[in-house]
Design a protein around this nucleic acid. Structure first.
Lengths: 114, 114
DNA sequence: GCTATACTTAGCCAAATGGAACAGTATCCA
DNA sequence: TGGATACTGTTCCATTTGGCTAAGTATAGC
């Protein structure tokens, strides 16, 4: 149930940048190449790549290079980590831990598969 | 439904530090003074205060000074903001937006008041 | 009034972040 | 083979972060 705190550091830090949230948002609709992802942003590619790397290191995306194209896809585990943290907090301020398990399980069923 | 993106920057950034997550966790159990909050941390007070200020600016806590004691309490709005973002993402990858409203409403009912 | 308490303000520092430019490398296609 | 495409590696830069110390202010209590 508990997350390794250092992991959460990265998970949340990744979301603190609008470019990265946008990337996660875009990948929610399906995988895409770095080039595709970069197009909407007025930013040099190397700068953009830093965000891609950070997202990969923090676990939000996974990437695979085939030929000269690197394809990116979303990872769902971090969402669960964030949800777990949220529900732990709610459990605290509601003063009862029994709802914790309930809430997480329900949330993950909505998010369904992996 | 949409959040102002700059607000989300701060909301997530605040959570990317373990000290700040711990403070939020502690305040989930009820209000506390800066001194009380700082006790568990092996950190100079001015350093600790920076975290308090950042949490206040990002909206996670509200503080009030009475006499020489500043008391801190949790704010619940940012939780809703995070939950909204999460559910928007889920809605995306589930390919249907109709569940979005549902999920948020359900989640907020669990978090109840405020 | 004096002293201890509870922050505050100010300034310093090393490391990390988020951007840039420029020059590679590795494929793909004609 | 030769050029265009899609990254990648390297280096640079200003700003932000997260910590520190030292000194200051404002109550609270005796």
């Amino acid at each position: 149930m508990e997350q390794y705190p250092e992991q959460l550091d990265g998970v949340f830090h990744a979301l603190s940048d609008p470019t990265r949230r946008a990337i996660v948002g875009r990948l929610g609709k399906g995988p895409a190449s770095v080039g595709e992802l970069a197009k909407p942003f007025d930013m040099a590619l190397p700068s953009f790549m830093k965000h891609i790397h950070l997202l990969e290191e923090s676990g939000w995306i996974r990437t695979r290079k085939q030929g000269r194209v690197r394809t990116c896809a979303i990872e769902k585990k971090p969402f669960a980590a964030v949800e777990t943290w949220l529900s732990e907090q709610r459990a605290l301020w509601e003063g009862r831990t029994d709802r914790l398990e309930q809430f997480v399980t329900a949330a993950q069923k909505k998010g369904k598969s992996r």
